[in-house]
Every structure is written in structure tokens, then in C-alpha cells.
Amino acid sequence: MRRGLLAEFETPEALLQAIAELRSRGYRRLDAFTPYPIHGLEQALGFRRSPLTWLVLPFALAGTAGGYLVQWYCNAFDYPLNVGGRPAHAAPAFIPITFEMMVLSAALSGFVILLVLSRLPELSHPVFDVPGFERASIDRFWIGIDARDPALISPITERDLTDLGALTVAWAGKERS
């Protein structure tokens, strides 16, 4: 949400109730800003499961294959050593490094993909300019309605948010349209 309408609520219960009411009225581009996690907020906002696990899986498998292939190449193909009559390609001996390469590649790729999907780092955001928004990290609960939401009609939505118990209603990213 780069631009839109923000509403401040005093309790998490009021926030959840307002989100449920707004979604029943047809608002779909909603976001919430809270000082701590609230049980049921993701379901109330209609968030889907993150695609991060499926995006990281190919990198984890590539790290696994790469770790195994490097060990095979070094020990069985490029420089095989006959130590005590053991085979040069001993797959059980390759398991620990292979597993660690999978974990390393999944962690690094997951971190980078998370930053890309979240569009981070973002040093400044229009919601930070809204008066009182700094309390979202202390003791207040905020709902954001994206300006691209087709159900957002400025005076009607502002009145609806006030009727739902919003302490303040303000625009982020631009002046009223």
C-alpha cells in the first residue's frame, strides 16, 4: 500500500471487527499495522499462504545436487584414492555435506527471495508521514485501505471507518481525492 486511507483503532478486537465489517462491505485491498501479532488477523484480511517455500525448493535441491556432485567429482573422478580398500564413491560418506549444502542454499536463497517479495529494504514509506502512526509500534492498531481498492469512495469510506470506531482517519501518500 503506497497510497490509501488509514484508520486508527484502540484495541485489537475493534480492529478485527472493523476488518470483518469492511470485508463484508466489499473492501479487498486491506492491510493492518499492529504492535504485536494478533491471532486470526491473517484470516480476517484474507491473506493466502506465502509462495516462499515453493520458490526456495528448487534452490535447496540445486544445493543438494551441487554438494553431492562436488564430492563425487573430487573423490571418485578427479583424484580417487584407494584408502584401505574402500570405494572412491561412498555415498553414505557424502550425506552430511550434502545435507549442509541443502540447508545453506535454502537459507541464503530464502533470505534473498524474502527481501525481493517484500520489496525490502525500503527506507521511507508514505504511511510514516501520517500523524500518530508511530504509535502502531507501541499501542495502537491501524487499518490501511489501498487507494486502488474499487470500493474506496473517500467521504463514504471515511464515514464508515468513523462509525466502526476509528479514533482517527487520515490519507497516506497523497491528499484526498
Rank of each mutant, 00 (worst) to 15 (best):
E42R: 09
Y36A: 15
Q71H: 04
W54E: 06
F59K: 01
G84V: 05
D139H: 01
L123K: 00
K174L: 14
S154H: 05
G40E: 09
D139F: 02
I138P: 01
S124L: 09
L69G: 08
Q17C: 05
L6C: 12
E134D: 11
Y73W: 14
F9R: 06
D146R: 01
I138V: 15
A172W: 02
D149S: 04
T98K: 02
D31A: 11
A90K: 03
T168M: 09
L22R: 03
G85S: 07
A147T: 00
L15G: 04
E158L: 06
R25G: 15
R23T: 04
F111M: 12
T64I: 05
L114R: 00
L16T: 03
L161D: 09
P150A: 10
T162D: 12
Y79L: 07
L81D: 01
L15W: 02
G110P: 10
A91Y: 08
L115A: 14
E13A: 13
A93W: 02
S105T: 14
Q71M: 11
R86H: 12
L114Q: 03
A65I: 13
F94I: 03
R176A: 15
E100T: 04
T162A: 15
L115H: 01
A170G: 05
A90S: 15
P35D: 08
L152D: 08
S154A: 14
P12S: 12
L22C: 07
F9E: 06
